[in-house]
Each structure stands twice: as C-alpha cells, then as structure tokens.
Design a protein around this nucleic acid. Structure first.
Lengths: 203, 203
DNA sequence: GTCTATATTAGGATAGAC
DNA sequence: GTCTATCCTAATATAGAC
C-alpha cells in the first residue's frame, strides 16, 4: 500500500507494468465499490486493464489480495492501541488517544479499513480477520471500562455499550469521508471526541 | 414479515409448507449471516430445507427477495420521519423523535434494516434502495440543520457531519444488538440520545 | 510482467411431474 | 407447495508461450 502512491513516479512505456502494491490498491478500490463477494476477478482485471493470468502472477488468489489488505488495516488499528497504552498511564488519556488514532488510521488507510469493516466471516481469511478484530475490540472495551472507573465516562451507560457506540460513530466515517474532500481528518477526530464525550448539544 | 412470527402456529404435516413471509424471513437471516452476494440460492434452500424450484415458486428471483426486504426497512424508516414531522413543529423535537424512532425501527425490523445498511448499489434493486435512502438522509440532514439554527445543536460542528455522526452511531447498532439480549431497545434509544446530545463524559 | 486458450466448478434459473 | 433433472452462464483458476 505504501508504494501505491509513488507508482505514478515510475511509469513504464506502453503497457501498465504493475507491481504488487499497485495491483493491490486498484483491487481494494474495486472491492469497496461493489463489495468483495460481488467483485469477480474479471472486474479486477477490467479495472487494471490486464488479463486474469497477469493478475494471478501477482497474487495467488482473490482471497490472498483480501488477506493482505485486511492485515494492513488491522496492523494500523492495533498499533494505535499499542501506542496509546505505551504513552499514557491513565485510561482516560488512553481512550482519547485511541479515538484520535483510530480516526487517523481510518482516514489514512481508508480503503483497507473500509474493507475490514465489511467483512462477514466467509472463508478462512475473513474469519482470521474477525478474530483479530474481536481482540482489538476487547482491548478497547477494557480501556473504556477503566476510564469509567476513573470517572471520565458516565456511570449510567454500560462500558461495552459505550465502546460500541463510540466505535460505531468512528467506523461510520468510512461510509462518507473522502480524502481531499471538505472535511479535515484531524478536525474530524476532534469533532468525534467532542461529540461522544461533550455531546452535540449547545450549552 | 408480519406473518413470520405466527408461522409456528399453523404447522403442516410432514413437509414444512412455507408461505411467502416465512421464506422471506429465513432468506433475510441467511443474507445477513453471509452477505447477500455471498449467499447462493443453494444456501437459501439448504437453510429452508427446500429445493430451488420450491423457492422459485415463492419468489421470481433472488433479487426479488432482497427487494421486498429493503422496501420493508425503508417503509419503516420513512414512516419515522413522516410521523416526527406531523407531530412536532420544532425541529429540535423532530430530531429527538427521529433518533428514538430510528432506533426503534432498527431494533424491531433488525434483519431487513441490517440488509439495507449493507447495500452497495449492485443491480437495479440495490440502486433503487440507495436512492430512497439518500432521500431519507437529506430530509434528516435538513431537520438537523434547522435544529442547529434553533439552538439545540452546537454551531461549531457542520450539520451534515453531525447528521452522519449521529446516524453512524444509530446504524452501528445492527452490528451487535440482538433481540432478547441484555440491552433494552427503548433504553438504547435514550442512551444514544444522551450520548449524542449530552455526551458520554461525566459531569 | 503479460498474453491466449482452456479446464472446472458453482451459480441463477426453468421445465414439467406430483 | 414441492420435487427431480437440467440448462446456461459466469466464476475462479491454470497451462504454457512471448
């Protein structure tokens, strides 16, 4: 994924001449437009301007493309929690750091995170991703519960429900946020922090 | 959908003997478990204990099943806005009514609304549903903007962003809410109203 | 890194009997 | 309302040449 952006800087004569990361970026884009299951390998090759054989030269299967993208997204999200835990002793600070970090990863790695959030558990690749995602959710829920004991989060809402509502709001961003659009990703992180903690009501 | 619950009250001898609503309920459940596109007609008939021909006796195509379910969900959501507009002159009251009503429809019609929220726009049936959903979103955004002018919603967050964040939180409920579980749907509506308007922070 | 050609299976849907 | 048998297309994937 990291090489995808610099792809245009190394053009070929005539044929596209994709490398693995470029193929990945296009494939993930098409997956998100039609859904992974509704996307055929023919759809991918049409978007790439390649034949199936050329695509299978880069990835051994359609599922292998999905696997790389999902792991990229999960790596990014797990790193946010790792960093928050390493940097902040207070759960309240960890939570604020996680909200900001999750919004940052989500906007920076929008395609792969979007794909991750739509996984239903079909096949081994998706099941493995769901397992990692559940572990992530549990770590965050534990931090929210601790932040609640510390007094940051109100006690009249269940910690698991609060976590789900906060991340429900964060994750919904993939449905409408577009890089280069009118919404700044860092401001969005602050908006979501304000919306979930302070509330959207005027005071 | 309404007849599905009373199905067990009219059993047949030997074979299941499904009617249209019962087939619909099972099909929507399977669609949600694997995703619409990943669900084959064979998956549906396996869940029903029927052959393909029997299924095609009730619905003319796989897409026709989807269409009925999506319209059911959209009817429910549109009715919430219609009722809110009819009952409340103030946009602030309309918004509160819509949040409560949307959570209610979402929990009461969980299977069909879940399906609706995952539609990507493949084929005419999904495109038609997306058009209706966009119209719904626009009506709600206009009400949020008006509520902001009335002073209910803070002015430092864009109305369109606020709408998306609020409904992002509401819609995320389909990912974890289960009827008969520990979370009461009416309480959940109040929690979301509190979370989005008052904020989750202790005071 | 890409091509043409093809193997193989699964998918949606129908015909016609009971 | 359901069955068996079948059609036809589209899907994933591979072989082997350039």
């Amino acid at each position: 994924m990291s090489q995808a952006e610099t792809a245009a800087a190394a053009p070929r004569r005539g044929r596209p001449g994709y490398d693995r990361d470029q193929v990945l970026a296009v494939a993930v884009k098409v997956f998100n437009e039609h859904g992974y299951d509704a996307t055929s390998v023919a759809d991918l090759t049409a978007a790439l301007g390649l034949t199936k054989s050329a695509l299978y030269h880069h990835f051994e299967s359609k599922a292998a493309i999905l696997e790389v993208a999902l792991n990229d997204a999960l790596d990014g999200l797990e790193r946010v929690v790792d960093d928050a835990v390493a940097q902040h002793p207070l759960a309240a600070d960890r939570l604020r750091s996680i909200v900001r970090g999750a919004v940052h990863v989500l906007t920076a790695k929008l395609p792969s995170v979007t794909l991750l959030l739509r996984v239903r558990g079909n096949g081994e690749v998706e099941l493995a991703a769901l397992r990692r995602r559940r572990a992530f959710d549990q770590r965050v829920t534990a931090i929210v519960a601790e932040a609640q004991r510390e007094g940051l989060i109100r006690g009249d809402v269940d910690a698991a429900v609060a976590t789900r509502l906060i991340f429900g709001m964060i994750n919904s961003v993939v449905e409408w946020y577009r890089p280069g659009g009118p919404v700044d990703p860092d401001e969005l992180g602050e908006d979501i922090l304000r919306a979930t903690l302070d509330g959207l009501q005027s005071r």
